[in-house]
Nucleic acid binder design. Structure first.
Lengths: 323, 323
DNA sequence: CAGTAAATTGCAATCGATTGTACTTCGTCA
DNA sequence: TGACGAAGTACAATCGATTGCAATTTACTG
């Protein structure tokens, strides 16, 4: 068997030997310290490139007493059948992962649904990482507050909440809900449903934007048109099918996600009604998938990948601030 | 602000001091070495529990010159619009992640589509991990062979191939395709379509199982009934819609995945035909979602989570063998 | 009871980096 | 010319564990 040689990566000591200096000097040269002569610095950098030297991050992190890992927790709402396969989460994850990689950080993903996030503090999610990103608040705002008082930095994607002591990043959900509803109102719709669980902070804000738009057009919000449609495709279809079968009359719907909107469109079509002729639908997030659907889904744009990057940058600024 | 104290985790040296022994003895006691007296061993274990000692895996891995990380690469077929959001991949990932966690290993996920896996050897996917799990072979069988000759252990989920030098784990795709087709034949169907890209090794095997079943029933396989339907839901629907519009006559279809099957059912319904009355559908994988659909999807069961565990265990046995 | 083997435990090197401190050159100025 | 400060390097401790080898204690054997 032609065993390809284990190209054992070159170590800093070896590079130092080649350059005829000590580890310390190489280390300083690579981190561009002013304490090392410009000429030797250039020489070392050239040798490093030539020998394809790459610093051993594991050893580095060990010395610096950090893990080089950032944990990500998706606050999936179990009641709403929210699942990680939702493109919203995957795009967010993609943005986070890209940005972390650029900073030479690793990503640790919580992959079990979390009933009470306080328990995380004893788990690898917290113990093994330098910081934690929560995507969504679920219904655990107060727990997030508690956790943020501990030593480990966290950032949260979600809605602003009263007495919030954690670092938050999020879109403008009120305006989002308002815009979506307004769009439908301008199409002449008046019986506009709202699909989503308003116990979730972000959804609640969109709902208030929805009500605001309705009121501005002199339409009284109808409680029966606020339906707790789950996020997951199949469950969403079931829920909407039930709604249609109940003969509740409505001519439009604001959805809490694009997957939900696509489910609505499919279900309505199957039911023999036309979209948007009979019922107009607006989604939320603008996932890539939305652009492929026919006809193209109308949706409220959130740049999710970019949001992921912002989350990472926010966390890093906290981490560096603590240094 | 009530700053909760940074409960700096106790170190092995500190535990040793408490126990009145040295680090070495503690280390041996915790790894159940026969070289330490049973009584002291018990005492140390008790103290460890009492003080909630947890070994610093980062330091441990550093000393043992390994990373404690296993990389996972999903070989998404771009032409087939295969995407990580497919429940097949997510369930597989779940199984892998669970099993790795039980072994105190971290998971590193390749999240960009990989055109040529040989390039991975220069990336963190390889450099930063103790081993790599490939889910699927794509069309890169020979590259996998090449990679397997290098030093880093890999295992691959997929089909057996000629001159295969890498460790492979996989289901029995020939039998799977055979069973699915046979089921449809026994329902009396004769014009049975096959949906999927037969350039993918696993799909090719199922296709041969499909042909075998047909021949046994005296049905001649029709090339026009082998359709390269993409994996992704929306693209699959487009593809199947096109097929239906072309008035190609068929009364059943064997699908390459459950998502594909669910897409087929939805599209057929929208087209005004009935499932299974007009066209019967069989899926593949038995993802959780399949059980929720109505009527329940007929599918070929692959225990995906379990498969993920097998992949991990296989990789670990290679890793341990190399020691 | 001396002597040796076995059972335990301590000692110290090691993994690959970072960084504070000490030391060696210089150049400069009085 | 001798002293002094700055610049540039070398030295060595350190992060938290593992493990071969040395040292000590205990147990047996003749």
């Amino acid at each position: 068997m032609s065993q390809i040689k284990t190209k054992a990566p070159i170590t800093m000591q070896e590079l130092a030997d080649i350059a005829g200096v000590t580890r310390g000097t190489v280390s300083r040269a690579l981190s561009d310290s002013p304490r090392v002569n410009e000429k030797t610095k250039a020489r070392i950098l050239a040798l490093a490139k030539k020998h394809k030297y790459r610093v051993n991050q594991k050893a580095r992190n060990f010395r610096l007493r950090r893990s080089g890992v950032v944990s990500v927790v998706f606050m999936l709402d179990i009641k709403s059948e929210q699942h990680m396969s939702d493109p919203f989460f995957l795009e967010m994850l993609g943005g986070i992962a890209d940005c972390l990689a650029e900073h030479d950080l690793d990503l640790f993903l919580a992959h079990a649904p979390i009933a009470n996030i306080l328990e995380l503090q004893e788990s690898r999610i917290f113990l093994n990482s330098d910081g934690v990103i929560f995507v969504g608040q679920g219904e655990q705002h107060s727990q997030l507050n508690a956790i943020s008082r501990a030593e480990k930095p966290i950032v949260v994607w979600g809605a602003p909440m009263p007495r919030q002591s954690y670092c938050r990043v999020g879109g403008d959900n009120i305006t989002g809900g308002y815009l979506a509803t307004n769009h439908l109102l301008e199409l002449g719709r008046r019986r506009i449903a709202f699909f989503g669980n308003v116990n979730l902070p972000e959804i609640a804000l969109r709902y208030s934007g929805y009500k605001k738009a309705l009121k501005e057009h002199g339409v009284k919000p109808d409680r029966h048109l606020q339906i707790e449609v789950p996020f997951e495709m199949q469950h969403a279809r079931d829920s909407i099918e039930e709604l249609l079968a109940s003969h509740t009359s409505f001519d439009a719907a604001v959805c809490s996600s694009d997957v939900m909107a696509l489910s609505a469109i499919a279900t309505i079509n199957e039911f023999g009604l036309r979209v948007p002729d009979d019922i107009a639908i607006v989604g939320y997030d603008d996932i890539g998938l939305a652009r492929y659907s026919s006809p193209t889904l109308t949706t409220v744009r959130q740049n999710i990948r970019w949001a992921g990057r912002v989350l990472v940058e926010s966390l890093l600024s906290i981490l560096n601030g603590q240094n």
